[in-house]
Computed example of a mutant assay.
Amino acid sequence: MRRFAYLLVVFLAAGCTTAPPDGNDGDLTGGWALPPAPAPFLPQPGFCHASLTQTEAAADYRPLSCDQVHVSETYAVGTAADADVPPAAGTAGARAAYRECADKAVTFLGGQWRAARLAVHVVWPTRHAWSGGARWFRCDVTQSDLDGYGQSGRAETLEGELTGPSPLRLGCFAPSVKGETVTEMKPVRCTSKHRAEFAGLWQAPDTSYADLEAGTARSAAGCRSVIARFAGLPDDSDMQYRSGWISYNPTRTEWLAGERRVRCFIYFAERTLTRSLKNAGPDVLPVD
Rank of each mutant, 00 (worst) to 15 (best):
I227H: 08
P167H: 05
T191A: 03
R154C: 11
A50Q: 07
T183F: 06
A39H: 09
Y6W: 14
D238H: 10
A14N: 02
V85Q: 08
S72N: 04
W32D: 13
Q203T: 14
R195K: 06
A228G: 00
L64G: 00
P187Y: 04
G244V: 12
A89L: 13
T163Y: 01
F11N: 02
E73C: 00
G222F: 03
G30E: 10
R62G: 09
T53E: 14
W130V: 02
C48F: 06
F230E: 03
K278H: 14
A59D: 04
S225T: 11
G26M: 01
L8S: 09
T74A: 15
S192N: 14
E270K: 11
A88E: 06
R62A: 15
V10S: 11
M239C: 11
A221H: 10
A214K: 15
D211A: 15
A89V: 09
G164Q: 07
D67C: 01
R189G: 02
R261N: 03
C264E: 03
F137L: 00
H128Y: 03
A102P: 05
L34V: 10
D25V: 07
R62P: 01
S192T: 11
A76I: 08
A102E: 09
R195V: 03
T74V: 14
A174G: 07
A257D: 04
C139D: 01
P86E: 02
P167D: 08
V69S: 13
G244D: 12
L12I: 15
F41Y: 08
P86V: 05
D147W: 07
M239P: 07
V9N: 11
H121C: 02
A13T: 15
F47S: 13
G110D: 07
E197P: 02
A39C: 05
A257K: 02
V284E: 06
C101P: 01
G46N: 05
T181R: 10
S51C: 04
V226R: 10
A174W: 09
L109C: 00
Q143K: 05
T274P: 02
A81Q: 11
R224Y: 08
G171I: 00
E100L: 08
P282V: 12
V123W: 04
F198G: 04
G171R: 10
R154G: 11
Y241R: 08
F173L: 13
S65N: 15
Y6E: 08
A94Y: 02
A214P: 08
T274Y: 02
P36C: 10
D288W: 08
E161K: 13
G133S: 03
R224T: 09
T53K: 11
E259S: 15
Y209S: 09
A97H: 13
